[in-house]
Design a protein around this nucleic acid. Sequence first.
DNA 1: TAATCATCTGAACCTAACTTTAGGTAAAGG
DNA 2: CCTTTACCTAAAGTTAGGTTCAGATGATTA
Lengths: 138, 138
Amino acid sequence: MQELAVTYSIGEVAEKFDLSIPTIRYYDKEGLIPNLQKNAAGVRRFSEDNIGTLKLIECLKNAGMPIKDIKQFIQWTLMGDDTLDERYQMFQELRVSVQKQMKQMQETLDTINFKCAYYGKATQDGTEKFVKDEMHLE
Amino acid sequence: MQELAVTYSIGEVAEKFDLSIPTIRYYDKEGLIPNLQKNAAGVRRFSEDNIGTLKLIECLKNAGMPIKDIKQFIQWTLMGDDTLDERYQMFQELRVSVQKQMKQMQETLDTINFKCAYYGKATQDGTEKFVKDEMHLE
DNA sequence: TAATCATCTGAACCTAACTTTAGGTAAAGG
DNA sequence: CCTTTACCTAAAGTTAGGTTCAGATGATTA
């Protein structure tokens, strides 16, 4: 019984993740995509597993994690069950960090909303003069 | 009647905003802090107004705005009421961008929470084997 | 008076994360 | 058979956002 393994070209993957082809090659060179196979001609073929790794990489990048830390995490996954504690701790710290970032971003959004109201009024008035006084002294 | 103007040294400001002194000088050099005065000896003295500008700079940085765009905004504020439309539009676009970032960060947090649960179980088991199957099939 | 601070300037340096360049290979279409 | 397309490598280049360095100044403390 044969396994029919679906794979993707680097171009397809780039499209899928909205990353440039050189970026994906760079991630590969950095060791972020383990077990990435190449065909006889040396062309990369991405498995579903590799796609999963890339999804996780994108998640960690969004969390603000630097490439070298992502690399460290990938190394840990390759080392098996001995590194479960490190990985668990990493995600717990990451959670705290992301929660902090979200709180901060909410404050940022509040300020921006205030500024939108401020400039909305100011553009209506055609000047900052009135809104400036209004909003500063109660 | 004299105004007694409270001012701060660069060291105090650095402390207050948790920025390095060179970073603040760099912002000044980039023109991000208009009307920043220096005393007779050439030493910067930060007014409440300058502090307000720095607060806004921090907000815009948190929103992911690059320094050159922040600079552009500061230029606009210096040009007066003629640039109200530009500033209003900038903040409206920034709002959309930050809302998008927050949504993305929530998804990131969801993934991280899942991973925390996954590795919590795995560390208890001492192996990924069980939790891997459990969480993938069903 | 001497030394220690905190500050200054201009210029060089640094790091992360890519991007670009140059030159080359393999398969598919006309 | 020729050309276009999609891919390859290694190495150099780029950009943002600072940081570090070298040498100088002025105010305070021992």
